[in-house]
Write a protein that binds this DNA or RNA. Structure first.
Length: 437
RNA sequence: CGGGGCGUGGCGCAGCCUGGUAGCGCGCUUGUUUUGGGUACAAGAGGCCCCCGGUUCGAGUCCGGGCGCCCCGACCA
């Protein structure tokens, strides 16, 4: 994209309402604009990040055997009466009425709806197991939204659901999702740690939360340093191998990891001091096994091989996609601005034209832009160099291709790596090769 | 839901106590200048001072009632 023709409204001063760093930077870098408390509009650069994150989720979920679907945001209250959650959920659920005075709601999660879909569509044990997910907007009317997209009321979330014939199979699905989640977060360039968790209103008896480490995280976390060097490779663990999934799960759950709420001093003290790590974490995902809670209440059963009815064992699996955009910034920034991991950056690189209007410089920039295409942001504004440097650092592009008249006459540019600050004088061709990776 | 704070050009704020022509910095527009880390000068544009009501000759300012937003706590993907 050409910055001169893009709506990426960076701002110099810190908006008064933004207290934490990711919120400030998302506003300043022109990623989002607030519309109401806890409700945000996503501008072009912000939406690209959201899509990048969602696509990483899609790719790895597909490999784990999950199918993508899309369910509506608006649901019928009747559905939730079947599970008993219409009354149980409380004021976090946004309840609305349509013109015929029918009770509706803006979905905060989708166990009921998908169970109903399955009930209508699946009758035989031969059709299970199934693993389905969607990436869709949710609404939870938080008492006190804050921290920008980290605690919005409207949020973009991946929610997945597994349906299995028996407990063993359900546990296998759960373990497969745990592996998939760890790989998803790795692919985004952040380190996540699974921690045993309470199940909350979703119900059930097996649950883990995933936290990514960030100095500004909401909760204190305690973990074994082995999490810093976890091997998640395809050669080590296969989704197809039950043994692999079990080994992986045992490895994850045998290592100590707890938020401050669940911290166990005794267990902690048994870990060699050199292996203990303390930090702050932001929850970016949670997985649950909850058995037949919904399939029984909502009358979803399949006929088994012996003709008997079987209520499928279910689990659900969430990733806060919009929250991740903020969480990644919390984990990856400096005083100058965002430092995007390559995989989620809105643009792989920015081309900084330091002398807009200088024929040689312009030509070299155009060449770079034509070569890299949509994955770069070409700063072709008639602005001063300093302003372009500052904005590029703020927006956090992994690479900056700095083109000025001094080097341009020889076809040379300066390539800067945002994360390390390293710079090198290179020919344009060499710089482009590096940016392409 | 308890406690606190704030609503004044796009952004950050002053003015309110003590009522009397709506200000500052940044940004924006035009020109000159400058040109490798937010240049300097000049000239401009831009404001139902959150809303409604009251007091007053006169309200951004005082009083009452709303609405919105933020922060701390409890709660939470």
């Amino acid at each position: 994209m050409r910055l001169s023709r893009s709506l990426i409204p960076t701002i110099k001063e810190t908006p008064a309402e933004a207290q934490i760093v990711s919120h400030r930077l998302m506003l300043r870098a022109g990623l989002i604009r607030q519309q109401s408390s806890g409700i945000y509009a996503w501008l072009p650069a912000g939406l690209r990040v959201l899509h990048n994150i969602a696509n990483i989720v899609r790719a790895e979920q597909a490999r784990a055997g999950a199918q993508e679907i899309l369910m509506p945001t608006i649901q019928s209250a009747d559905l939730w009466r079947e599970s008993g959650r219409y009354d149980a959920y409380g004021p976090e659920m946004l309840r609305i009425r349509d013109r015929h005075d029918r009770e509706m709601l803006y979905g905060p999660t989708n166990e009921e709806m998908l169970t109903a879909i399955m009930r209508d569509s699946v009758q035989s044990y031969r059709d299970l197991p199934q693993m389905l997910y969607q990436i869709q907007w949710k609404f939870r009317d938080e008492v006190r939204p804050r921290f920008g997209v980290l605690r919005g009321r409207e949020f973009y979330m991946k929610d997945g659901y597994s349906f299995d014939l028996d407990y063993a199979s359900a546990v296998s699905s759960y373990r497969r999702m745990m592996l998939s989640y760890m790989r998803i977060f790795r692919d985004m360039g952040v380190r996540a740690i699974p921690m045993r968790a309470d199940t909350g209103p979703i119900g059930g008896d097996l649950s883990h939360e995933f936290h990514i480490l960030a100095p500004t995280g909401e909760s204190g976390v305690f973990y074994d340093k082995a999490f810093e060097t976890i091997d998640l490779g395809d050669d080590t663990y296969s989704y197809e191998s039950q043994t692999d999934l079990d080994v992986f799960f045992d490895h994850m759950t045998s290592l100590y990891a707890a938020t401050d709420e669940k911290h166990d001093i005794d267990a902690w003290s048994k870990i060699p001091e050199a292996d203990r790590r303390e930090g702050r974490g932001i929850e970016i995902g949670q997985i649950f096994y909850f058995g037949t809670k919904y399939s029984e209440k909502m009358g979803f059963a399949v006929v088994g091989p012996d003709g008997a009815k079987i209520h499928p064992e279910m689990g659900s699996y969430g990733i806060g996609v919009s929250r991740l955009t903020g969480a990644i910034i919390e984990a990856s920034h400096d005083d100058a601005g965002i430092i995007w991991p390559d995989a989620v950056a809105p643009f792989r690189a920015a081309i900084l034209n330091l002398r807009q209007g200088d024929a040689t410089t312009d030509a070299l920039c155009e060449k770079a832009y034509a070569s890299l295409g949509d994955c770069v942001l070409y700063d072709d504004r008639p602005a001063r160099a300093g302003e372009k440097f500052v904005d590029a650092d703020l927006m956090g592009h992994p690479w900056q291709i700095i083109v000025g008249p001094r080097g341009a006459v020889n076809g040379m540019v300066e390539l800067k790596r945002r994360r390390t600050g390293e710079r090198a004088e290179l020919s344009l061709e060499d710089a482009l090769a590096k940016v392409r990776g």
